[in-house]
């Protein structure tokens, strides 16, 4: 059964005149009602109240909006919601794991990776997708695949965190 998100729990309001669609987000099918060109990011943030996924650039440059779609990392800011259907499983930072138990989240906690933390939802989603596709990435592969921007400068700890989560030691 589709779940209509209750008003008052972060939902602004049902948007008059907009199209109804269904999305599968964090394991639940939800009705959404927006113009079809609305980026997935803003549907997550403003209609579903999931603000862990961040707006950073709006043009798929920085990766702060990274979510998983059927397990692959995707930048939600530049993808219209009309590109998705309820058969696709969308996972946001809120749904990555119960109790921050994903190995990436655990490694991040152990190494105190975040500074301001604003980019870290996207960083964690990109890193977890990377490990899902490549459980033992080389350092060069991590550097190549992880293109998210962090202005505080957590890159070296992100690399170390991915290696820790993958159960591989840091190199040189």
């Amino acid at each position: 059964m589709p779940t209509k998100p209750p008003l008052g729990s972060g939902i602004t309001e049902w948007q008059v005149g907009a199209e109804v669609a269904k999305l599968n987000v964090n394991g639940r099918v939800v009705d959404i009602q927006v113009e079809e060109d609305t980026p997935l990011l803003w549907v997550l943030r403003e209609q579903l109240g999931m603000t862990g996924t961040k707006y950073g650039c709006g043009v798929a440059q920085c990766g702060a909006c990274t979510v998983h779609v059927d397990g692959a990392a995707l930048r939600a800011c530049a993808m219209p919601v009309s590109a998705f259907n309820e058969g696709q499983k969308i996972v946001t930072i809120e749904g990555l794991s119960p109790n921050s138990s994903h190995p990436i989240q655990q490694a991040w906690l152990a190494l105190d990776v975040p500074q301001c933390g604003f980019c870290q939802s996207g960083m964690i989603m990109a890193a977890s997708a990377l490990l899902a596709a490549n459980p033992k990435p080389t350092e060069a592969q991590i550097r190549e695949e992880m293109t998210n921007i962090c202005r505080c400068g957590t890159y070296n700890r992100v690399i170390a965190g991915i290696q820790r989560a993958a159960g591989i030691g840091t190199s040189g």
Binding site: T51, G52, Y55, T92, E94, L96, S100, P114, G117, F118
Partner: peptide
């Protein structure tokens, strides 16, 4: 360890952009 890490790992840290008032 920092006191403010846990909230930054699961999307629960509230930044200004995330604020919502009735």
């Amino acid at each position: 360890a920092r006191l403010d890490t846990a909230e930054k790992l699961n999307g629960s840290q509230v930044y200004g952009m995330d604020l919502r008032l009735p």
